[in-house]
């Protein structure tokens, strides 16, 4: 009965297995104490060896190049280079947080609970998800920064010439294809809707495509395709399996985006090797 399923005593704590229990003091408290000591000592050591950075006093007239957000936001700053700012900076992270928060409501089975990689195949699925996340994200970054076309041409002598120039990166789909003039200004509303200073009336279709359409498509399609493929291949059976792939893919992509944003983005957010990375202070008055 449907109502019975809803009224299932989901929040009931597990019964205790008293004969399997040990005393918190000393068994747990001791471990916590050691962990706290190890971290305290390690952090003291680190603090003696390495000083927190302090650059020149803040100056709104001197822009460092590159200017970077704190490292844990550089994943978003990296995304920002590839798509519409609102999408990269706000919509994608917000939606992801909601999706992640909803994991337990999607995957409600108790199977595999409470032990590392408790379900069948979960190690394999985590590795596949993680690797696809890492390799896929690197591939997309290399493509969109034009490096892929550059490597193909420089190292292997492949060149698409002018015909395939539009495949060089995402932006060139907008700039290198002969879009008809009308497509750059499609009126979709008979009057201008203004919401807090932003107006919505005309659509620049090629611009929309490269800044929102394709990035959204990629972010939705890649994970969906991966999960679909693994399901067809008989590796995904349960919701837990699907969530494991999705989460592992996220961790992989997050890692790559953070590392690239931190260590591979030089002046003008150009993609460079970490050892080529240097920061120059801007010239006063020049942004």
């Amino acid at each position: 009965m449907a109502t019975a399923a809803v009224a299932r005593p989901a929040a009931k704590p597990q019964p205790r297995a008293r004969d399997e229990e040990v005393l918190v003091w000393p068994d747990l408290v001791f471990i916590e104490f050691i962990a706290a000591m190890v971290f305290t000592l390690a952090l003291f050591l680190l603090s003696f060896l390495m000083n927190a950075p302090l650059l020149d006093q803040a100056n709104a007239d001197v822009t460092p190049n590159p200017s970077k957000a704190p490292w844990y936001l550089l994943n978003l700053q990296e995304l920002l280079l590839h798509m519409n700012a609102a999408l990269a900076g706000v919509i994608v992270p917000s939606i992801w947080l909601v999706i992640m928060g909803a994991f337990p409501y999607f995957d409600r089975d108790n199977d595999g609970q409470g032990i590392w990689f408790g379900t069948e195949n979960s190690i394999k699925l985590s590795i596949i998800g993680g690797l696809v996340g890492i390799v896929g994200t690197w591939f997309l970054i290399l493509w969109d920064s034009g490096k892929l076309a550059f490597f193909l041409n420089d190292w292997f002598g492949f060149s698409g010439g002018d015909t395939f120039r539009f495949l060089e990166n995402v932006r060139s789909i907008q700039t290198q294809l002969p879009w008809p003039e009308w497509s750059r200004e499609i009126t979709y509303s008979p009057w201008n809707i203004v919401i807090i200073g932003e107006d919505f009336q005309n659509l620049d279709f090629p611009g929309w495509l490269v800044e929102q359409g394709i990035p959204t498509g990629v972010m939705v399609a890649f994970p969906s395709l991966l999960i679909f493929a693994l399901w067809r291949a008989g590796m995904i059976f349960t919701r837990r399996d699907a969530v494991v792939v999705l989460f592992s893919g996220f961790v992989g992509a997050y890692l790559v985006l953070t590392v690239v944003g931190t260590a591979f983005r030089g002046q003008g957010q150009e993609l460079v090797f970490p050892w080529q990375l240097k920061v120059s202070e801007g010239i006063p008055g020049q942004h």
């Binding site: 200017s67 936001l73 700053q77 920002l80 700012a85 200073g197």
Partner: peptide, 26 residues
């Protein structure tokens, strides 16, 4: 710390927040 690192990181960071549709600038 109000040094260059701080100032520009927060400028970049809040620009990201400011890009939100409709409510961003506010």
């Amino acid at each position: 710390p109000w040094d260059q690192l701080a100032f520009w990181a927060i400028t970049v960071g809040t620009n990201i927040a400011g890009a939100a549709p409709v409510l961003g600038p506010k």
